[in-house]
């Protein structure tokens, strides 16, 4: 199935802004995160189709996953 992956902020550097990935049916958000090779400790928010999601969520064909870095400074 096809899943669109969007990276934000720092994650774009040396990677991509947006790409379409072909992944096996039943793949979870975790699989997409691993594929994108963003540092685990830097991951903040994850969105599926524009809404907050968790890593265990199973994706469907045509879904869009967005990955944001953790922002905590004051």
């Amino acid at each position: 199935m096809r899943v669109t992956v969007k990276l934000f902020a720092t994650f774009r550097k040396g990677r991509f802004d947006m790409e379409v990935r072909i992944v096996p049916p039943g793949s979870t958000v975790s699989r997409i995160v691993e594929d994108a090779r963003v540092p685990e400790s830097e991951i903040g928010i994850l969105l599926v189709n524009g809404r907050h999601s968790n890593r265990m969520r199973e994706l469907a064909d045509g879904d869009t996953v967005a990955i944001f870095p953790l922002v905590g400074g004051g």
Binding site: T10, G44, I45, H52, L70, G72, G73
Partner: peptide, 16 residues
């Protein structure tokens, strides 16, 4: 919602 993992103390500001 703002910090789903809640495991890390600080974010990418330590680098940026």
């Amino acid at each position: 919602h703002i910090y789903p993992s809640g495991k890390e103390q600080r974010g990418v500001e330590t680098r940026l």
